[in-house]
Amino acid sequence: MTIASNVKQTLASLKGAEADLSSLALRTQDFESKRTLHETMMSVHEVVTDLKKRIGEMEREEFQYKGF
């Protein structure tokens, strides 16, 4: 396992968590909880964006990491 593939795995997990949070926010009846869940989802999304950027850099620097 290379670092790049580890980062990609984490990225996938985070994306999954983001989607789960989003669907939980939709299902939740309480407004306050809904908002907290949504805000958490946004933070996770920011992390996802940063990780994506980093993966792009890694792939550019070392070509063998490209793809899955």
């Binding site: 670092i3 795995q9 984490t10 997990s13 985070l14 999954g16 968590a17 789960d20 939980l24 992390v47």
Partner: peptide, 24 residues
């Protein structure tokens, strides 16, 4: 178990990020 799963995923990812920070 949905909510417990989300929490554990988030915790795992947070630990991973810390590891990456140390490794790079």
């Amino acid at each position: 178990q949905d909510r417990a799963l989300i929490l554990s995923t988030l915790k795992k990812c947070q630990a991973d990020l810390e590891l990456f920070a140390l490794g790079t």
